Simulated scan of single mutants.
Amino acid sequence: MNDKPAAILDVIIPTRNEAARLPALVAQLRAQRGAVLRIVACDGGSEDETIPLAERFADAVVVSAPGRGAQMNAGADAAQTAWLLFLHADSGLTQPTLLADALTALRQRCKKLGHDRVAGHFPLRFTDACPDILNALRFHELKSALNRLGCINGDQGLLISRRFFSELGGFDDTLGYLEDQKLAARIFAQGQWMTLPGALETSARRFEQESVGPRRALNALIMTAHHTGLESFFPRAADAYREQSRAERLNLTPFVSHFLNAVGDAGVSIGIRRWGRVGRYLAANLWQLALLAQQRTGKPWLARFDRWLAPGLDSTMVGWLLTPLAWGALHALRFGGAIGERYRS
């Protein structure tokens, strides 16, 4: 007779060559208290010992086409419980009851609203880097606690009911990345987000290996291209999210060139309209300057910005005023990067 209590939460972990990290995460999951977990590893073509380790430690192992979106969809198809938690393999759990507390908070929100169209994400705490890198990433940690479009990423975890996830259509697996941003936008449109109690740890090694400045700039290019409809940027920048094991100092210049080409590849008149969208996207993200000021001063600049400045920025005119700034900054970045690469070579 099996007296083991039934799982109440499927934890879905996309893996690809994660043999060095998966056992530590599984050990933390097994040590969680207050919630019975079912661990599903969804592998996308590992060439190391990830699959044998997953078969040893996880409750289910699914093999799919590579790409986090496809892998996590396959993991969701193999789920058996009413609640799903998607976690990256380099995540770390910060409390012994982290997942039980998170699930309780999400259930309470759903009960209060009378529906389950709610998704939860954790704030982040970066680890595995030198103090200077970790200090530079404090701003990203602050952003990760917010429920704003563009601030919620896959490394923050995704806690959601299986029914709502199915209603949303799962992850978009068209690209090898951005599946988290696309699903986040659909959640904003059809439901709501909540910040879960506690925090997740995540590795800052990519920032350390690629350098914080270039990685931030590339992330900004990716988000701008995504939110302004510059789809031709992504095939050109297919190496934007190389596998962690292949990460090295990032040369930003080709990505800036790909972005500029994506803006201007359809002629002058369409290019002008695209630059206008870039300017409006820049205006929509000026709140980040207020958050930065709040981080440095401890004063509530973000609330003040939202109350007094944000309403006036929601106009086409402001976007056009910022368009020359975006144009000049990107061309200067491409020119400066080309000179820098020539000097280093």
Rank of each mutant, 00 (worst) to 15 (best):
G69W: 09
G69H: 07
A70D: 11
A70L: 13
A70R: 08
Q71C: 08
N73C: 10
A74H: 05
G75Q: 02
A76N: 01
A76K: 02
A78M: 10
A79L: 12
A79G: 12
Q80K: 15
T81M: 10
T81F: 12
A82M: 07
A82W: 05
W83N: 11
W83T: 09
L84Y: 02
L84K: 01
L85F: 09
L85Q: 11
F86V: 15
H88V: 15
A89R: 00
A89F: 06
A89P: 08
A89L: 05
A89M: 06
S91V: 13
L93K: 02
L93C: 01
T94R: 08
P96G: 04
P96Q: 05
L98W: 09
A100S: 06
T104I: 10
T104A: 15
A105H: 07
R107K: 11
Q108S: 12
C110Q: 07
K111R: 11
K112D: 15
K112Y: 13
G114D: 03
H115Y: 02
H115W: 05
H115C: 07
D116N: 12
D116W: 01
R117H: 15
R117E: 14
R117K: 15
V118S: 08
V118A: 09
H121K: 11
H121W: 05
F122E: 12
F122P: 07
P123I: 00
R125N: 08
F126G: 02
T127M: 07
A129V: 01
C130D: 14
P131D: 06
D132H: 11
I133T: 13
I133R: 06
L134C: 06
N135A: 13
N135Y: 12
N135P: 02
A136V: 04
L137A: 10
L137S: 10
R138H: 05
R138V: 08
H140Q: 12
H140C: 12
H140L: 14
H140F: 14
E141R: 06
L142P: 07
K143F: 03
S144A: 04
S144C: 04
A145E: 02
R148D: 00
L149M: 13
L149D: 14
G150P: 02
C151D: 14
C151M: 13
C151W: 09
N153Y: 14
N153A: 15
N153M: 13
G154K: 05
G154N: 08
